[in-house]
Design a protein around this nucleic acid. Structure first.
Lengths: 159, 159
DNA sequence: CAGATTTACCTGTAAGATACAGCTATCTGT
DNA sequence: ACAGATAGCTGTATCTTACAGGTAAATCTG
């Protein structure tokens, strides 16, 4: 199963090569899965909208810059995405009382509901996909992914 | 740390919710990382080009349709990506001797070299990011990601 | 084997995500 | 109070991708 013949013989490098392979694959499969799930019947939320609503739900209302920084996106990107979300009634913009330049973005009940529906659908999907995994393996996967994300995030934030 | 207050109390659902969260995050961070690494100095390979070259390297020369099916992409998408790769001298098209409609896509030495360079850079990057992980944890991560991808792929392929 | 169907690939068109550059309004430190 | 930083927006451009429709080749069917 190893396809790392050109990475060298260092076992550490082999493992890192495998991780690289699997993450690249996961990105592709995740995209395909998202496309297959979301777009088909629901036409509910595009990728960015979901992430923004998730973040607003978790971290509370905040302005565009904070969102952009947190999501590693350009401010202009978030501006447009927020505009679309507002058009669809999924978030609300209010002037920031503490800063005349800023606007605070909050999810609307409709937005939270839409987000929760997508989340539930995806969670259900992972339940199907991982149906034959042990609870331990699922826990370990969740833990390791969490640590991986923390490490990636720390690295991105440092640069 | 749990943010699954609205997913219910079933511990299984909690874990699945965490997995969903972490995968969504990883997709975003992975994108950001790719953008930060690849585009900056090298301007080497965009995402699709890398995936196509990886696949050609692993699975051998094949035609556009096979690539599209394997990568879960529309044929027209692969056609264009292959055209760009050909323009840049990274793949070669030859008429399929067994099928007058088809063209076989093969990586060129330049393409393989470019791909290997990106791969090495990413592997190095993961080495930095996971510098303080134990070898065991890295192995486990690689294994679980592999299994996750197999499960996702099986599911995508079934539909 | 002739006509119908399927397949492989390409092109036109369109949409979404994202970045960068440049603009205005506002804020902050000295 | 002014210079510089910051927040957000708009214009423009690129990349990725899909769907619809077209042509040519292969395959099936009676």
């Amino acid at each position: 199963m190893r396809d790392d013949h050109r990475t060298g013989t260092d076992p550490d490098a082999v493992t890192l090569g495998r991780i690289e392979t699997e993450i690249a694959l996961l990105m592709r499969l995740g995209e395909a899965t998202r496309r297959a799930t979301g777009t088909a019947e629901h036409r509910v939320l595009d990728r960015a909208a979901y992430v923004i609503l998730r973040h607003l739900d978790k971290a509370g209302p905040q302005n565009v810059s904070a969102l952009a920084a947190r999501l590693n996106l350009d401010g202009s990107t978030v501006t447009r995405q927020v505009s679309a979300l507002q058009r669809d009634g999924l978030i609300a913009r209010t002037p920031d009382p503490a800063d005349g330049r800023g606007t605070v973005i909050s999810p609307t009940p409709a937005g939270l509901q839409r987000m929760a529906a997508v989340r539930a659908a995806r969670t259900r999907l992972y339940g199907e996909i991982l149906a034959d995994w042990t609870g331990d393996d699922r826990d370990t996967l969740a833990d390791l992914l969490h640590r991986l994300n923390e490490a990636l995030d720390a690295r991105n934030r440092r640069r």
